[in-house]
Design a binder for these strands. Structure first.
Lengths: 145, 145
DNA sequence: CTTAGGTGCATTTTATACACTAGATACGTA
DNA sequence: TACGTATCTAGTGTATAAAATGCACCTAAG
């Protein structure tokens, strides 16, 4: 089994970039493919990191904006299956404060407000992808017994 | 810049396995390294997937067990910075129901109970790694302005 | 009296339901 | 043409429900 030339070039280029960034090829493949690997984090760092995501809705807002692209307030409300507008409003505010989301106002009337991921927000969204993909193929994890 | 022989062998082996699994090399690199990429998910799938993680503490429990390995009840309580035992107990129950965690009883006395990630749990933990690593290097996202 | 692994219960925090607002245009009709 | 009503967007206010916390307490053996 061999790589297509296109894939080969892509892989070669990526490997060079990854090396330049100081990350280990082995760790990157291992983390993605099949092995548990020490990727240099500690429980404390994880608890810190997830403090913001484990507050209900933050992670869903991020995913919705990442997948669906920039959206307006009521569009988000629909995407998130009817989260209350009160809560959506509050959560969007804290997402802005955390630098994940920016609020773009188009003067009206009617005034329209578009929510957009910042660069950080997009990165976080991207990093969540593999987990969503995994969960999607293992619905037994979602529908509790 | 070239790969060491060890890395080269590892990469080659991994690429073959990834190809056999039907996943695209390009997507794997892109998702890991620097690009936004359509990895075939929809908002609905993401909202489903995160419904369980965005409930407070679930994701932290997963991360703690993944990073620190099997732990007993009170060890988890400490790792999670003093979550109330009431809540930890409830959350561990729902994690078991979702098939992320298993409860291993060593008959006492004193009775000892060890919590351990299932295979699914370990996979989810692994997939969260890159996000934690990213957050760790971008603390400005955690400490809101 | 200690240790491990919890449960019970009152209080506090967080989310929901649902009514309601502003500011401007659009529509119906006398 | 003028008048009233209806609609749209992006929220806010407030009462209620759900979830997390703090702290006391339980069991069972050494």
């Amino acid at each position: 089994m061999t790589l297509s030339e296109k894939d080969f070039n892509y892989v070669q280029k990526s490997i060079v970039e990854v090396q330049r960034s100081g990350r280990s090829i082995r760790k990157i493949f291992a983390a993605y493919y099949d092995e548990d690997v020490d990727i240099g984090w500690e429980v404390d760092a994880a608890v810190d990191a997830f403090e913001m995501f484990s507050s209900r809705w933050t992670i869903e807002i991020l995913a919705a904006l990442y997948i669906a692209g920039d959206r307006r307030f009521n569009e988000l409300r629909t995407l998130l299956r009817g989260i209350s507008s009160r809560t959506l409003s509050d959560k969007l505010t804290t997402c802005q404060e955390h630098g994940l989301v920016e609020r773009v106002v188009e003067e009206g009337p009617p005034i329209r407000v578009t929510y957009r991921l910042t660069t950080h927000g997009r990165t976080c969204g991207r990093l969540l992808g593999p987990l969503v993909a995994y969960m999607k193929t293992h619905k037994e994890l979602i529908e509790s017994e």
